[in-house]
Design a protein around this nucleic acid. Structure first.
Lengths: 117, 117
DNA sequence: TAATGTACATACTAAAAGGTAACTATATAA
DNA sequence: TTATATAGTTACCTTTTAGTATGTACATTA
């Protein structure tokens, strides 16, 4: 057993999905199933290469995302959700739905026009 | 309409519940319905007065928590969830449930022994 | 007169997270 | 020989977040 610094399980979950870009990355992976580094950069124009790699590595270490390297030149690397990552889908969807309602109520504009599902 | 810095509604939701102590505070408010400053300090021995006030003020500003001041000496102030705050309950519960399963799978120990509901 | 209880505020410091810019590797194509 | 495409890495800096320690207000009680 590993001792954790968390006061409750909520904090654990938050730690895993709480990075600046993790929600968006997970959301795209849920939509597209498989994505390469460059595709993600194109899908998220404001993310930097460093942040993308960093967040992906963390999620890989936490077992949310898998990384498959093809031994080619130029390199090819594929990312997809693990089953733990996939099991976050209902939470992501609920958080999006809640955000949509809240934004409507508070008259907040969000840049993204994407539809879920 | 207010323009926001968010890429998607997930980030909006995350911003509102993502502070270091917000989950725990919300969780206690969901359990107890009404809490005073001192009660919260006792329920969360590791939070500091500064962080408690700060997180409560943010949640108040975001319309998740209401603050009622009784004009007495010594002062009396009551906190409770607004309807927006209350509507976060299913998300909190799902995040806790997910964390419990994940922690079991990964053999991670969490300090809290509290039961939800 | 001094201590008590309650709910803060404020200045300062430390740590974590995020961002910028430049660099790396290598087979293939022009 | 030079440019291209892909998927990174690294050093450095800035911003944000969190934590520590101390101070404030004031009616009531001892």
């Amino acid at each position: 057993m590993i001792q954790s610094p968390f006061n409750c399980h909520f904090e654990l979950t938050l730690e895993l999905i709480g990075g600046k870009w993790k929600g968006l990355i997970l959301w795209h992976l849920m939509e597209k199933k498989v994505l390469r580094n460059g595709e993600m950069l194109r899908l998220m124009p404001r993310i930097t290469q460093k942040m993308l790699t960093q967040q992906l590595r963390e999620m890989e270490e936490n077992g949310l995302v898998s990384r498959i390297i093809y031994e080619q030149v130029p390199p090819k690397v594929e990312y997809r959700l693990t089953s733990h990552g996939e099991s976050l889908r209902p939470i992501l969807n609920q958080m999006i739905d809640w955000g949509v309602e809240y934004a409507q109520d508070k008259k907040i504009m969000i840049a993204c026009t994407k539809q879920k599902d």
